[in-house]
Design a binder for these strands. Sequence first.
DNA 1: GTTATTGCAAACATTTTGCACCAGC
DNA 2: GCTGGTGCAAAATGTTTGCAATAAC
Lengths: 147, 147
Amino acid sequence: MDKKELVSILRENEIQVTPQRLAILEQLKLRKDHPSAEMLFTCLKDEFPSLTLVTVYNTLQKLELSGLCMKVNPLHTSARYDGNVTAHQHAICINCQKIVDIHDATVFIELPKWFNEIFKVLKQCVNLYGLCKECQELADDDKALLN
Amino acid sequence: MDKKELVSILRENEIQVTPQRLAILEQLKLRKDHPSAEMLFTCLKDEFPSLTLVTVYNTLQKLELSGLCMKVNPLHTSARYDGNVTAHQHAICINCQKIVDIHDATVFIELPKWFNEIFKVLKQCVNLYGLCKECQELADDDKALLN
DNA sequence: GTTATTGCAAACATTTTGCACCAGC
DNA sequence: GCTGGTGCAAAATGTTTGCAATAAC
């Protein structure tokens, strides 16, 4: 993926182009290891000696907001615990962070052969991110206020 | 769930019984809101004025190790980003935290009616926790060393 | 030239660690 | 009484914020 293409991706998303942002976006597009802010910082600080972690965080936030990248583990602010260790799913409200159990969903996951040869699955975890009833209503209220 | 039952759960798992641990386990079994350490601390500090967050964290760690509770959002130490925002799954190694993409899995999730009435799903997220090939081999080595 | 971004310092939140005192067995 | 847990202080880690210098348009 060449620089021109990266530049136009940023422009299309109305994100001002800077060398730091180009480099971070390039890393995200190239790498397959799902880096953390720290990992990106470490690999780019030689190329940009003045680069700081703050800029990496700022950039990631901006890219995520435009849908150019996403967190593999959202809702990571603090660990949330469940005393029910039987198999079930979680629905997580992206607004109020409420977590709702779903015990009666049907989940079917078939994994490709290549994958089962390199990875031993111990736990399978389905999370549904979205809006709970209360937060949907709040969102509707927001829309109403805009009229 | 009465105290006797909680005591025997702890004893069965060879966890020394203390009032703090009983109270935390009780909360985890009773509550449906998947509390954080802070939330548990807040609701128990009236009953145990001397209680500290440290004890809550210690207890949660011990309970999790015995499978008596689990984190809803494991691998929360630092956010990991993905530049590929198309739908795919992640396999996450619980040992080295490597994250592997799976693009060719078949995922079918049917949600109960009651759920769709109270929650609007925006993103569905399947995470497979387990061991990557390298860490499986290390685990085998560990076993070999024990012989 | 104006606006937005970067980099610095510092704050903040979450979680972990070292150590003295205390409670469970 | 011994072992291990609790509570305190402090450190470590990940992330965010306020502000002056600087770069993008």
